[in-house]
């Protein structure tokens, strides 16, 4: 499923115009992205949580050429699946 299919399903379920479902979905996703950009974590019961990990700068290698390169500090978001979803993925009948 992609974003536009999700928006279509949302419009159908809420019985609202596609435009409204689309802007609501954008609001939700933007709020999540903004939180992560501010270094905040996200915790949604039943779904999962996101945390941002910070990495310092380190030396790595270009695997193709073997050349030594400096990797800049970076932040990466990580997702941990929630208990309910974790169980349901393995047992869809539940």
């Amino acid at each position: 499923m992609n974003k536009s299919e999700l928006i279509e399903a949302l419009a159908e379920e809420l019985k609202v115009p596609l435009r409204d479902a689309s802007s609501a979905a954008t609001t939700i996703l933007d709020a999540m992205a903004d939180a992560l950009a501010n270094g905040e974590s996200i915790e949604i019961r039943g779904f999962g949580s996101f945390v941002v990990k910070e990495y310092g700068s380190y030396y790595g290698r270009n695997p193709k050429t073997g050349e030594k390169i400096k990797v800049k500090p970076k932040k990466l978001p990580f997702f941990k699946v929630g208990k309910e979803l974790k169980e349901q993925v393995n047992n869809p009948a539940k």
Partner: peptide
């Protein structure tokens, strides 16, 4: 709206289907 959004996302994954949200 928020509940429905999460429910749809969860149902998709429950069915074993990948969920691709462009830009996210």
């Amino acid at each position: 709206t928020v509940e429905a959004f999460l429910r749809i996302a969860k149902d998709c994954l429950k069915d074993g289907e990948d969920l691709l949200i462009s830009g996210f």
